[in-house]
């Protein structure tokens, strides 16, 4: 049984008398134990899909299931932890109270130890007794993540979890997601930022115009999103390589090569006995990936 199953969802919104098609046959499933990336540009239908899974929006047709239970049944949400995009919480609550409230909504009475543990993990232990209205955006994001975890869910659904986070926050989030996944938690999260997805996802679905365009595994996504490589070499003799190298400082050159050209370039460097200092893939931005997918 799939952790999440989305079957031919269709949804049209009425915006000022105009019909806007948000979902047009969205279909995919998330297997147990996956870290599932839900990738697509803004307006592709990511949030709408997630809101249908969490029953905030009702689909015109089609169904969504969580662990086999239809999403319209409130019990389906007992096994998920959810963090919406730009989450908002009752801002008179303190961080600690918010976590305890969250736990109690799932029927956990005594979650104090767990709450303190999470606060510490997310670096909020000093703000535990501070009302949420005094939290910064990044702190809200962290407490939101903690709140989604307090009842130890099997499935995590996160809508743009890393938007608005500082680099350290991103790192904490990614680490935590990997850790949870190792414990067997299925993670479903959406993003429009490629590196976030690529770093941790075991599977990626790309959506556009309300439907799935492509379904990739971990390796495929890495290949697809890499346009080429940036090679840094040490060339003390200033040998002319004639492959478009640029000097970035004394004796150090940067070479950009295409994805398919890496082996040739490396061989050339080997022949000329040039020391390679660093090779780094060059990531495409999402727009380019889409163009590529749509062209293929």
């Amino acid at each position: 049984m799939e952790a999440i199953k989305v079957d031919n969802l269709k949804k049209t919104f009425k915006v000022k008398l105009k019909q806007v098609k948000a979902l047009d046959g969205m279909t995919f499933d998330v297997k147990k134990g996956e870290i599932f990336g839900f990738l697509g540009p803004n307006g592709a239908g990511k949030s709408t899909t997630i809101k249908i899974i969490t029953d905030l929006i009702r689909a015109d047709s089609g169904n969504a299931y969580i662990n086999g239970t239809p999403s319209t049944n409130c019990k389906a949400r007992a096994s998920i932890g959810f963090m919406p995009e730009n989450p908002q919480y009752y801002d008179t609550l303190t961080g600690l109270d918010m976590l305890l409230f969250s736990a109690s909504m799932f029927g956990y009475k005594d979650a104090k130890t767990q709450a303190y543990k999470l606060l510490e993990e997310f670096g909020l232990e000093n703000s535990a007794k501070v009302p949420l209205r005094k939290y910064s955006k990044g702190m809200i994001q962290r407490i939101g993540f903690a709140a989604a975890l307090i009842h130890k869910p099997d499935i995590l659904i996160l809508d743009e979890p890393m938007s608005g986070l500082d680099p350290i926050g991103r790192m904490i989030f990614k680490k935590k997601m990997k850790e949870l996944n190792n414990q067997g938690v299925t993670i479903f999260f959406s993003s429009h930022i490629i590196p976030d997805i690529e770093d941790i996802c075991s599977r990626v679905v790309i959506v556009k115009d309300g439907k799935v365009v492509k379904d990739f595994n971990e390796v495929e996504i890495k290949y697809l999103t890499t346009s080429g490589f940036e090679i840094v070499v040490k060339n003390d003799n200033n040998t002319n390589l004639e492959i478009g190298e640029k000097e970035i400082s004394k004796g150090l050159y940067k070479i950009n090569c295409d994805k398919g050209n890496l082996i040739n370039t490396l061989e050339l460097l080997k022949d000329k006995n040039i020391e390679i200092i660093d090779i780094e893939p060059i990531k495409k931005d999402l727009e380019d990936v889409f163009i590529e997918i749509l062209n293929s």
Binding site: K51, T54, C74, K75, R77, Q88, Y89, M105, F106, A147
Partner: peptide, 14 residues
């Protein structure tokens, strides 16, 4: 309006 509903309604309550 403040979208508290997003979080509250995502709890397992009707």
């Amino acid at each position: 309006e403040r979208k508290y509903t997003f979080t509250v309604l995502s709890y397992p309550i009707t």
